[in-house]
Amino acid sequence: MEKLLTIDIADIKVSNDPSVTLVTYALGSCIAVIVFDPVNRYGGMIHYMLPFSTKSPEKAAKNPAMFADTGIPRLFEQMYALGSKKENLVVKVAGGGQLYDDKGTFNIGKRNYTVMRKMFWKNNIIVSAEDVGGAKSRTAKLRLSDGRVTVKVKGVESVL
């Protein structure tokens, strides 16, 4: 039986139970970073809202998962704590959407994406697949039994 583990908005969860499927809903401008360790079949996911914690240090201290700059490192730390090794991790990304006819006023999705890309570049982390941008709201899932990642948009699910 597949066990669903939901990652809320501004939330991180990792699991070493291969019967678990991690899921997060309604990724608008928020981003889900999805990591899978195929050697041990461990997996983790963050659903962060915002790029930078600089203006909200108290929020970041209370809930680092809200921000890319405090949350993404935490996700990797939690994977390492389970016993995963950096070189084994497969990283996928979904979200970062924007409004239909946004001309840049609300570019939170893009800012969320850019900061993540910079962090990964600095830390030599390769994104193996992504589904980002556009006027789309996404649901993302990671199945730990085989590492399959799916993204659902407007009711249609596809493998990432």
Binding site: S29, C30, L99, G109, S137
Partner: peptide, 22 residues
């Protein structure tokens, strides 16, 4: 309303398919 949909508060089909009046 636009900000709420961006942050994923309340999922419905086409929630980002909205015009934002600049």
């Amino acid at each position: 309303d636009s900000v709420a949909h961006m942050f994923g508060y309340g999922a419905d089909v086409g929630e980002l398919a909205r015009s934002i009046d600049t």
